[in-house]
């Protein structure tokens, strides 16, 4: 499912975190990379409705997202995770995922249970299903956020540094999950991360932001070799 972003402009006083971004995410798992302050999180915030752009449109599946109230976008199918994980501490793992499902989909009690358990299984969380999130370590919390993002039928999944703070081994586990999201629910995944290995492992296609503008987009391998990207973002000596 394509996500067509057209001329998004965001202004905070004299600062322009996004300055006319036009890009079409082709579907599957897409990377969105760029240095700190490039506008990646602002871009996600525009898509989920926390930030209202002064100009632009985001069309997906024939629907204009930007005119929808924020919580209705979630009901339509926009899901996201946050840089600092936001699993609900006071609820059990099951209830965490159920909360998203019951607000974004309709179904009988049995259907709810089935959908939530499927998402938990997908993220390898069935073993801690009934535990309180407060008692769980960082890895599980990150994976709970993933389960919240994939439960039911998401259309666009925004992952904001989902591997932040995870050791390599767990990041690998996470990348397996991220790669399988599109085939599981036919959703377009947009992955923001500074871990280039993760982006390369998950994304065939990537876009690069710098200073609120689109610097490059295309197959991830090509984008990462692009001289503009090298000089602006990675620095020559890093490769």
């Amino acid at each position: 499912m394509k996500v067509e972003v057209n001329d998004i402009r965001v202004q905070f006083g004299g600062v322009m975190p996004l300055d006319g971004v036009t890009v079409t995410f082709p579907g599957g798992t897409c990377g969105l990379i760029g240095p700190n302050g490039a506008g990646k999180t602002t871009f996600f915030n525009v898509l989920s409705g926390y930030v209202t752009p002064v100009n632009g449109s985001v069309r997906c599946d024939g629907v204009e997202l930007l005119t929808m109230p924020d919580y209705k976008r979630a009901r339509w199918g926009v899901r996201r995770t946050f840089q600092t994980e936001q699993a609900i501490e006071g609820l059990s793992v099951f209830d965490n995922v159920l909360t998203v499902y019951e607000h974004t989909a309709k179904g009988s009690r049995a259907e709810k249970k089935k959908a939530v358990d499927e998402a938990l299984e997908f993220c390898g969380l069935l073993g801690v299903r009934d535990q309180l999130v407060r008692t769980l370590p960082a890895k599980e919390r990150r994976f709970i956020e993933m389960a919240r993002a994939v439960v039911g039928s998401p259309k666009v999944v925004l992952l904001d540094e989902p591997a932040a703070g995870l050791p390599d081994e767990e990041t690998n586990e996470l990348s397996v999950i991220i790669r399988s999201i599109p085939e599981r629910s036919d959703a377009t995944v947009i992955l923001v991360d500074h871990d280039m290995a993760l982006v390369q492992a998950c994304c065939e296609w990537s876009a690069v932001l710098d200073f609120g503008r689109l610097l490059a987009s295309g197959p991830t391998g090509d984008v990462l070799r692009d001289p503009k990207v090298l000089s602006a973002y990675l620095g020559e000596d890093e490769l």
Binding site: S48, G49, Y50, D70, Y71, K72, A74, R75, V78, R79, R80, F82, Q86, I88, E89, G90, L91, D95, L98, T99, V100, E102, H103, T104, R148
Partner: peptide, 22 residues
């Protein structure tokens, strides 16, 4: 359902919105 929604709102309103909670 209200209790779960409230727990979400109490912890983080952006996260609650992302879960589709009005």
């Amino acid at each position: 359902k209200p209790g779960r929604a409230w727990a979400s709102i109490r912890q983080s309103e952006p996260s609650a919105i992302a879960a589709g909670i009005a």
